[in-house]
């Protein structure tokens, strides 16, 4: 069966700025595919190319088997798109927004109600409230309902969790997981590395280029250097001290610990002893497995 999305050598320039530099990837049917990268990496440009809002300067792409340039009309009938900001009408009520987007695609809300029901039920008590007066989390749910109402074959969600608190973000990913189980292909982008693990496969993207594509597990398996977590008191001083110690290629903050990438010849025992001599107390060091963020940073340095 053909793939849901294929992109080959997609390139987009704005004047002298290259927003997307020869990007290739493919999304299988039914996959929840994550595009992980910071602001300005090119995520939104990629979404606009795939949703036929822009034409590429080079390369080509297909969505649901249709060419994004030649068959753009067919694609527009089939996909659901939720751009960066929640694209709702703040002066229309929850219900009116949903009705409008249904009519836009020539469907009736009740025909596809089963698809949005689990999400819509959470905001239904507020159905007469104007969308502009909903909380961030509720707006996000309504925008998702609106993008789903015509039962799209591929769902494009551009940074749906940006600016939303951790609880709403978590709920949102649970909804995406539910949609995946019902066979909807989703391409979702996020700047939050910790969300990568909720995807089937991810592409790490930075400064217009894809750094790597794999399953979250596969991505972290690419980290082939010894990695340690270092913690103790006076964390900032500890960071500076570790960077000056021999056998350490890199040391950076990582939540409650520092992550430390060792080079060949690193001696943990000697390292701890030297820290003790410098007066650091209750220092703990243990080997750990890399996370997606570790890989991202490593690949970023590769690119430079």
């Amino acid at each position: 069966m053909e793939r849901a999305i294929t992109a080959e050598g997609l390139t987009k320039r704005y004047g002298s700025l290259t927003a997307l530099d020869s990007v290739s990837f493919a999304v299988e049917r039914g996959e929840l595919f994550g595009l992980i990268g910071p602001d300005g990496a090119g995520k939104s440009t990629l979404f606009r190319l795939l949703t036929t809002l822009l034409a590429p300067d080079a390369g080509h792409a297909e969505v649901d088997g249709f060419d994004t340039v030649k068959d753009y009309r067919a694609i527009r009938r089939r996909v659901g798109y939720m751009p960066g900001r929640f694209s709702l009408y703040p002066d229309l009520s929850v219900e009116e927004n949903l009705d409008f987007f249904a009519a836009l695609f020539g469907v009736r809300v009740r025909d596809n109600y089963d698809l949005i029901a689990p999400i819509y039920r959470q905001i239904e008590p507020f159905r007469t409230r104007r969308a502009g007066r909903l909380s961030g989390g509720m707006k996000q749910k309504l925008a998702l309902c609106c993008a789903l109402i015509h039962r799209p074959s591929v769902l494009f969600l551009d940074e749906p969790t940006t600016g939303v608190d951790a609880v709403s973000r978590n709920e949102f990913w649970e909804m995406l997981d539910d949609l995946r189980q019902r066979g909807i292909t989703t391409l979702v982008s996020t700047p939050y590395m910790d969300e990568a693990e909720r995807c089937d496969r991810i592409a790490l993207i930075n400064t217009a280029r894809i750094l790597g594509i794999d399953s979250p597990k596969g991505i972290v398996a690419r980290f082939d250097e010894p990695l340690y977590a270092l913690s103790g008191e006076r964390m900032y001083d500890l960071l500076l001290a570790a960077r000056q110690s021999p056998g350490i290629r890199e040391c950076y903050t990582f939540g409650e610990t520092h992550h430390l990438i060792a080079e060949g010849g690193f001696d943990p025992v000697a390292f701890l002893r030297s820290l003790d001599e410098k007066g650091f107390q209750r220092v703990a060091l243990h080997p750990i497995r890399a996370g997606i963020e570790d890989v991202f940073m490593k690949l970023m340095h590769h690119g430079e």
């Binding site: 990268g37 910071p38 602001d39 990496a41 940006t162 600016g163 700047p191 590395m193 930075n206 964390m235 900032y236 001083d237 960071l239 950076y252 903050t253 963020e293 991202f296 940073m297 970023m300 340095h301």
Partner: peptide
């Protein structure tokens, strides 16, 4: 630090640490 890449985010926090120190 909203929307910033992980390397820049860490550099930023080091500025914060430095200021606190």
């Amino acid at each position: 630090t909203g929307g910033v890449d992980p390397v820049t985010r860490r550099q930023f926090w080091e500025l914060i640490y430095e200021a606190a120190a």
